[in-house]
Nucleic acid binder design. Structure first.
Ligand SMILES: NC(=O)c1ccc[n+]([C@@H]2O[C@H](COP(=O)([O-])OP(=O)(O)OC[C@H]3O[C@@H](n4cnc5c(N)ncnc54)[C@H](O)[C@@H]3O)[C@@H](O)[C@H]2O)c1
Ligand SMILES: NC(=O)c1ccc[n+]([C@@H]2O[C@H](COP(=O)([O-])OP(=O)(O)OC[C@H]3O[C@@H](n4cnc5c(N)ncnc54)[C@H](O)[C@@H]3O)[C@@H](O)[C@H]2O)c1
Lengths: 250, 250
DNA sequence: GAGACTAAGTGACTTAATTCACAATATATT
DNA sequence: AATATATTGTGAATTAAGTCACTTAGTCTC
């Protein structure tokens, strides 16, 4: 486990998660060994980049052979902190919130909604899922004290989002996934990600628009240009993500 | 409208969308003029960066004064292609798909679901929204020929996602927003964005994990370090996006 | 209408991320 | 045991993105 002291690119962490998912599918298919070229191809990244990404954390492969799928999977889990199960609180049990609660995949990945909050009277007190009651948002701090929460998911209207973030942080939670279309301000010790549908749609319309009226705001160059810049509508290179969301990833 | 020939950073487009949204809120509040510093502060970016982002497309401000809110808003709309209304097809009318259909905000922004597809017998034929019937996926090509579709939203299980992407592209649609946890391969002329919840959650767990056992995989540095690297759990610098997917965005 | 003041626009610089290309090291083969 | 072959790991080079800091061009005041 070498582990470099170098700064790790943010995008590397995003990609690690993507490799992780692909490795899981390889596991299911029974693949034992995979080369950086195969793994990179399956996740749409450059093979050298994949190797460099891993090299920030250690040396996991065997030269001339490749990577042992289950071993690499275990090691990426370790790096990303996916060894344990993570308790999540949902803030806002509306359309999106309910879809998230229903999503079985989260549990499989160790993400569990253990508390759900809302404000609207007709939602509060209902049993939204077997064993999961909707609590009033005012009880967040109190309940978070007994049930330790690692992550909070914000799914309230944008106008309420910053206030909710503040409440969440005050309750001692320091990881937030925000679905509201608002860029939140949080102190440095809090990890935050935005899931921003409209912004992503806007990048698509930009791509399609520049495609049509080529030359208006942009000058067309080499058509064969790889998926990296906005010369032509294309896939996202990364970050993006964002980058990203970020964000933002091919 | 100067319009530089330079390559435009992918992250610039993401940010443009974010400025756009913030400008809309300023409009609603009746603000007439805004400085780059204010606008940057409201969107959590560096003021110089905001000015540079705009400079790729022209000169929209007045020196010594700032930007006219409604004028800048109009110009960003123009750049991003938000002047027109965009027809969308939804592929997969399950949990997430239904939440998206319900979402009123999309219409306000010019994004309209005009066709909905699924495969499961009990969903096909139902009127899922007033005036919107769920069609069988096999009819996509046929219906897209009569109702022009600009963008497709994929909300089917990951195992079906690549196949759906291929079908969509074959039907002549060249913008895709994908919610399935799978990295899709598309030809160069197709614009693609991934909305990847789990990957974003994974970056949060990484941040929280490294926070706890500082020094394991990372070496703690200046604590005051601004939100830019993975030295400590923090906000996403951008892209991340995008990128990123990236993607990724503070 | 001269001078003070403010904030945009941008070239130069800095920092970050990606890719190249090859040395290092494993396995397989004869 | 020597050689062929494959694929990792990584410094060096390249490319991209972000920030600084100054110049320019407006408005406002007196
Ligand atoms: N539904 C979508 O497809 C979609 C798409 C993109 C973005 N979003 C965003 O996600 C967020 C939620 O969207 P939605 O469609 O689920 O909205 P929704 O109106 O269906 O649900 C919002 C829920 O939040 C609750 N709420 C409001 N203020 C609250 C507060 N202060 N404390 C606790 N609960 C509170 C409401 O009672 C409601 O149940 C919004 O910001 C929306 O813009 C949703
Ligand atoms: N629900 C969530 O909160 C959530 C969160 C993250 C990711 N996702 C992803 O979004 C996707 C959809 O999730 P969901 O929860 O809505 O699942 P779901 O099972 O509720 O809905 C999927 C729908 O797709 C339809 N479908 C399946 N194959 C199809 C095909 N070939 N053609 C047309 N329709 C088809 C199914 O009939 C079903 O109605 C999945 O890939 C899921 O992993 C969902």
């Amino acid at each position: 486990m070498a582990g470099k002291a170098t700064n790790i690119p943010t995008a590397t962490i995003l990609r690690l998660s993507i490799y992780h998912r692909y490795l899981q599918s390889l596991m299911e298919r029974g693949t034992k060994v995979v080369s950086s070229a195969q793994l990179a191809n399956g996740t749409n990244v450059n093979a050298a980049q994949l190797r460099k990404d891993l090299s920030y954390f250690g040396r996991f492969g065997v030269r001339g052979v490749g990577y042992n799928v289950s071993k690499l999977l275990r090691q990426i889990k370790e790096i990303l902190g996916l060894g344990k199960s993570w308790n999540m609180a949902l803030i806002g049990a509306g359309n999106i919130g309910k879809a998230l609660l229903q999503h079985k995949q989260f549990e499989n990945h160790g993400y569990n909604f253990v508390l759900v909050f809302d404000k609207t009277p007709f939602r509060v007190g209902k049993e939204i899922l077997p064993g999961i009651e909707v609590h009033h948002i005012d009880k967040l701090k109190e309940l978070a004290a007994t049930t330790p929460i690692d992550l909070a998911v914000i799914a309230v209207p944008a106008s309420q989002a910053q206030e909710m973030a503040d409440t969440i942080i005050e309750a001692g939670i320091s990881g937030i996934l925000n679905f509201a279309p608002a860029r939140l301000k949080v102190p440095n010790h809090v990890a935050l990600q935005h899931v921003d549908f409209t912004t992503l749609l806007d990048t698509l319309t930009y791509a399609l628009s520049t495609k049509e009226k080529k030359g208006a705001y942009y000058n067309k160059k080499k058509e064969e240009n790889r998926n990296t810049r906005w010369d032509s509508p294309q896939s996202w290179p990364d970050h993006m993500i964002n980058y990203s969301n970020l964000l933002v990833t091919k």
